[in-house]
């Protein structure tokens, strides 16, 4: 049993603004998306650089893969296309792309590969998080939080390594 202030993290849940973009909003929205992708990539790179010990190889490989996913031209072009041609806001474009990719994973025969839809949720969830904050100040505050109970059904590799080992005492 744990008692304390709880914080809910749902990296796979994307808050979507469904209102279509006006013509003059399209390019600024593309820029907002690209900035969020850049921020998410920078964060992954920073986390990767901080890794040491056993985490360096295990979690590091995940972070490298997630960084490459964010750099994938087809993925980014698909998102930009949804904004420019579909007039979707960045959050809605992320949700559409996420749902399309996850559907492909869910149809995979191999059980392990099917389970790796989590990689898509971690990566696109990270971009979504970057969209709704101007900087990663909030993340840097996390290490100093004491006695907080994190509630999440999935914890991304990037999340585990952004906390110092002393920052959590138990998980279940």
């Amino acid at each position: 049993m744990a008692l304390g202030r709880a914080r809910l993290e749902q990296p796979g849940r994307i808050l979507v603004d469904d209102r279509p973009l006006a013509a003059e909003e399209i390019e600024p929205e593309v820029e907002r998306l690209l900035a969020a992708i850049g921020l998410a990539r920078d964060e992954l790179r920073t986390l990767r650089d901080k890794l040491h010990g056993t985490l360096a190889s295990d979690v590091g490989d995940f972070l490298e893969a997630h960084g490459l996913i964010l750099a994938d031209r087809d993925l980014v072009a698909g998102l930009v296309d949804l904004i420019r041609r579909g007039r979707y806001r960045a959050s809605a474009a992320l949700k559409l792309q996420r749902d399309k990719l996850v559907a492909v994973f869910e149809a995979m025969e191999d059980a392990y590969l099917r389970s790796r839809k989590e990689d898509i949720d971690h990566v696109l969830g990270r971009v979504q998080a970057a969209l709704v904050r101007e900087s990663s100040v909030e993340e840097r505050k996390l290490a100093s939080r004491v006695g907080e109970i994190l509630v999440s059904d999935i914890v991304a590799p990037a999340s585990w390594c952004r906390w110092p080992r002393t920052a959590y005492s138990a998980r279940c």
Binding site: A65, L75, V104, F105, R116, D119
Partner: peptide
């Protein structure tokens, strides 16, 4: 050279 392309192949053992 596209990680998404390679992953989407769903190529298992």
């Amino acid at each position: 050279k596209s990680i998404m392309g390679v992953m989407m192949l769903a190529a298992g053992l």
